[in-house]
């Protein structure tokens, strides 16, 4: 089975840690933009971008909130780059039980970067006047079919395990919910 070729838009924020001045303007504007009503309050603890900073070790890593992970990783990574030792999780985008980043401070609910939907470019990029953050959009060709094939394999496995009938009922229930 060959898939249909389609293009999709990929939004990228390029992060140049060498240019970061550690000012956290990105955190400021992110939390303001996502306040309700918009810009009505400011609180970097609600920001979906964080600058992982250790100024004396010259470590500045702007990180965007990615998907929520229900559980911690089984192991942790520590990186040393150019003689600088980065704490574990420095480069990880997940909100997860092992760290305080990317969670609403009041509710603990996970935060995720939405690239400032509706704006010309993510506002953290706009507010980064030292150009540590730059925005790039590009078109990428994807084979839609490939995804369907994967899905089919997965469903087949589930059908084998639970039976087609149960699978059908579950799908029907899920689609009602949606």
């Amino acid at each position: 089975m060959t898939g249909e070729r389609k293009t999709k838009k990929v939004k990228t924020i390029k992060i140049n840690v060498d240019k970061c001045n550690g000012c956290r303007a990105c955190e400021v504007i992110c939390s303001a933009f996502h306040a309700a009503p918009k810009y009505s309050s400011n609180n970097p603890a609600r920001s979906r971008i964080r600058v992982i900073r250790d100024p004396l070790a010259d470590i500045y890593v702007p990180i965007y909130a990615g998907d929520h992970a229900v559980a911690e990783c089984a192991g942790r990574d520590k990186y040393t780059i150019d003689g600088k030792e980065y704490d574990e999780c420095s480069f990880c985008r997940a909100s997860c039980p092992s760290r305080s980043e990317f969670k609403e401070p009041d509710s603990g609910l996970p935060l995720k970067c939405d690239m400032c939907e509706g704006e010309e470019e993510p506002l953290c990029v706009k507010w980064c006047m030292v150009d540590a953050l730059t925005y790039e959009e590009r078109e990428e060709e994807v084979e839609e079919g490939a995804d369907r094939e994967e899905l089919e394999i997965g469903l087949e496995a589930l059908a084998a395990k639970y039976g087609v009938k149960t699978l059908q009922n579950t799908l029907a229930r899920l689609s009602k919910k949606a």
């Binding site: 303001a32 306040a35 009503p37 918009k38 810009y39 009505s40 309050s41 400011n42 609180n43 603890a45 609600r46 401070p105």
Partner: peptide, 11 residues
Amino acid sequence: GTKDINVARPA
């Protein structure tokens, strides 16, 4: 601190 600071007229 992890609390909000509000502004009166945001826009």
